[in-house]
Every structure is written in C-alpha cells, then in structure tokens.
C-alpha cells in the first residue's frame, strides 16, 4: 500500500474542516427559518436529555466520588489532618468547570453523536435524504437544526444535573465515609464557589453540544457504501467529537474568565 503524502493529509484535513464549517454556517443560517420542525425537536430533546440521564447520573456520581477521594488524600497528606474541609470548594470547582462538562460531553458524544451519525447515515444510503429534498424539505432544516438545538440546550441541563450529582458524590465520600466536618465542608463550598464557575461549565457544555450534533450530522450526511459506511461514520463521530471536545475544552478554560 502506498503511503499518503503529508500534503494529502493536510489538504484532506482542511477540506474536512471546511465541510464542518460550512455545515455549521448553514445550520445557524437555517436556525430561525420556517417551517420549524417542532415534533422532531421535542423528540431530540428527549433523546439527548431524558435518555442520557442514567449514564450521566452514573458517570457524575462516580466522578464526584473519585474526585472527592483524591482531594481528601491530597489535603490529608500534603496539608495535614483537618484541612480536608477545604476539599469542598476544590471538588465543586473542578467538577462544575471541568470534569462534569467533559464527562457529559464524552458520554453524550458516545451515546447521542453515534446515534445521530447512524440514523442520518442510514437515511443517506437508503436515499431518504434525497426523498426529503424531493418532497421540498430542506435536509439541513429538517435533520441538522433540531438535533443541534437539542444538543445545545440539553447538554447544559445535563451538566447542571451532573454538577449536583457529582458534588453530592464528593460530599458523600468526604463527610459520610471519611468523617470530614459536614458544616465546615458545606460552608467553605458555598463561600468559595462562584456563580461564574458553574456558568463557564454550562457555556462549555453548550459548545460541546454543538460539536457533537454537527460532527454526527456531518458524518451521517457524508456516509457512503452501505452498512460498512454507517459503521465508519458512527466510529468517526465518537472519535472526532471526543478529540475536539478535549482540545477546545483547554482553549475555553483559558478563554473563559474566572
């Protein structure tokens, strides 16, 4: 097999980035154009939000527990016994600004992003998207806009929910398992955590939602070659969306104040 030249890799990367950018542009251009696909939008809200609750609950709970565990160990070992009460704000800050938005983003990209790519990819190879077009429906408005809006709205909701579950997990480990003073733990948490810490996590989550939906739709819309193509599209969606989430999370953390 002949190796691909670096130039081809670069041109392919820019071509794909251009395709994603164009899809994003078209999606936002169609966001407020009629007809609104209310029924599909509501279905997607349920698909992205309600149906993701179990997986988000589990990951947030165990994320909070393990973060609580390591924070406790850190304070206990390096600062000394008694200092573990300061773990509360650290846990809440870390969870709401970084860990929960990332975990929710990765979980939803695996659960919803892959489903979007598989559904749209199957529609593509069975000519259903062409059928939409032939019946006068704009595929971007019908397929991409409701999914993008649903992900953009539901990821922050899931993140808030995950923040609560994760923080409760951290508190549970420190207070009820390790015996840290409950009153001081909660007081310090409320004292040092700021509204902006939570809000910046929600902004990130909304952006991750857009990334997941757009990558899933993009992969779905360019699916070719039958069942194998659908399989590739779903895998690519999860891999690409997860990588983008991790990369832009760093830049968002740097860019967002606080």
């Amino acid at each position: 097999m002949q190796a691909k030249s670096p130039f081809l890799y670069f041109s392919s990367f820019f071509q794909q980035a251009g395709e994603v950018g164009l899809l994003l542009f078209k999606t936002f251009k169609n966001l407020f154009k009629k007809p609104w696909e209310k029924k599909i939008f509501l279905q997607q809200l349920e698909e992205v939000g309600i149906k993701s609750l179990p997986v988000v609950s589990l990951t947030a709970a165990f994320g909070g527990l393990v973060f609580g565990l390591q924070t406790y160990v850190g304070f206990h070992r390096y600062i000394g016994p008694g200092s573990e009460t300061y773990g509360g704000p650290i846990i809440s800050l870390g969870l709401s600004k970084e860990l929960i938005p990332i975990l929710v983003g990765l979980m939803v990209s695996g659960r919803v992003g892959s489903a979007i790519a598989a559904e749209i990819g199957t529609m593509k190879i069975t000519e259903q998207i062409d059928a939409l077009f032939s019946l006068g429906a704009n595929p971007i408005r019908y397929l991409v806009v409701p999914r993008t809006l649903a992900c953009m709205i539901m990821l922050p909701c899931l993140t808030i929910y995950g923040d609560i579950i994760g923080t409760a997990g951290g508190l549970f480990y420190n207070v009820y398992i390790m015996g840290v003073n409950r009153v001081l733990y909660i007081r310090y948490t409320l004292l040092y955590i700021q509204m902006w810490d939570v809000l910046s996590g929600l902004i990130k989550a909304a952006i991750f939602g857009i990334v997941i939906a757009i990558i899933g739709c993009w992969q779905g819309l360019k699916t070719e070659g039958g069942a194998e193509g659908v399989g590739k599209a779903t895998t690519q969606t999860v891999v690409v969306a997860s990588i983008i989430i991790l990369i832009i999370n760093f830049f968002l953390s740097k860019a967002l104040p606080g």
Binding site: T122, M123, T126, E127, Q128, D130, A131, S134
Partner: peptide
C-alpha cells in the same frame, strides 16, 4: 415535482 425512487426511499 413528485419522485418515485428506484429503492422507494420510504422514511423508515
């Protein structure tokens, strides 16, 4: 236009 697709393309 109305178009009848070769593979029917019904919305599944």
């Amino acid at each position: 236009f109305g178009l009848l697709f070769q593979g029917t393309a019904l919305f599944d």
